[in-house]
Design a protein around this nucleic acid. Structure first.
Length: 259
DNA sequence: AACGTAGCCAACCGCAGTCTT
DNA sequence: GAAGACTGCGGTTGGCTACGT
């Protein structure tokens, strides 16, 4: 959002993330996991504070993030959970896979709060259709992203991603894609799948810090692919695209939907 | 077409809880 | 047990975009 480009106190960059920064952070975490947020920007080659990196990853770059297109079921669940938990957004988010506390909080303030007020003031008030009524371009892009990214990289490790209702993917095709991807991971990943799992648990340590050079030395220069917006389906170090929709939504979206 | 306004949402801040030494 | 470091959470901000005039 560019409130400040550089923090005057620390000299660290602030504000909106660039595609290059997203690529560097994603590439680093996908390869090494988030072992120490404070140190990550240093080794990933980012002029950001660790807190900013964590926020960006958790709310935006994480592989299984769902964006936009809240289903009626999700909204009802949020309302019910809000009655139960109040403003404990993280507790609410725990019941909505793929949704972040920040996004739920925003959605509550912009949509659901009004609706609950309307419900209390007028039980006859018509419900606005929820979900896809204002499908924006970037949300469409993210819907695509969800289709193309069947891996969930939670702390528990890799899990096949269930197809999203809002995207109407036949489960059979999604499942078969998962199979293909799992083979790709086995074949392409420079680290074993068990290592990968431990990486994402955030519980591994080594004697040597992970350097940016390590990423840059990856086979076929993965990072250059990651930061190249003209590359349509960039692969993560684990063999799948990890690119956030932000990288794409400024470009011609036809590259997604014409394939 | 130009301008003003409102809504959306990414990102920041500060605080609290947890972990490590 | 104390102190410092780290992480996570909720509140808030402000730039961007869509919409109305």
């Amino acid at each position: 959002m560019g409130r400040f480009t550089v923090c005057p106190k620390t000299g660290l960059k602030r504000g909106a993330w660039t595609p290059e920064e997203d690529g560097l952070l994603s590439a680093y975490i996908m390869r090494y996991g988030h072992w120490n947020w404070r140190e990550i920007p240093k080794y990933a080659g980012l002029s950001r504070c660790g807190k900013s990196c964590r926020l960006r990853w958790m709310n935006y770059l994480r592989p299984n993030i769902k964006r936009g297109n809240y289903t009626r079921e999700e909204e009802e669940l949020i309302i019910n959970l809000h009655e139960k938990f109040g403003k404990r957004w993280s507790a609410i988010a725990a019941s909505l896979p793929g949704r972040t506390d920040n996004e739920i909080k925003n959605h509550w303030h912009t949509h659901l709060k009004k609706r609950t007020k309307q419900n209390t003031t007028s039980t006859k008030a018509k419900r606005k259709p929820v979900g896809c009524e204002t499908l924006r371009l970037k949300e469409s892009a993210n819907c695509y992203q969800a289709i193309s990214r069947p891996l969930i990289l939670e702390s528990s490790g890799f899990l096949p991603m269930s197809p999203e209702k809002s995207c109407d993917i036949p489960s059979s095709s999604a499942d078969s894609e998962v199979e293909i991807i799992q083979k790709q991971v086995t074949y392409e990943s420079p680290i074993s799948s068990s290592d990968a799992v431990s990486d994402f648990s955030g519980s591994f340590w080594t004697d040597e810090p992970f350097l940016l050079e390590d990423i840059l030395n990856m086979s076929e220069d993965v990072t250059s692919v990651l930061v190249d917006p003209s590359f349509q389906f960039p692969l993560s170090p684990l063999g799948r695209d990890i690119y956030p929709y932000d990288l794409y939504h400024d470009y011609d979206m036809d590259i997604f939907f014409n394939h």
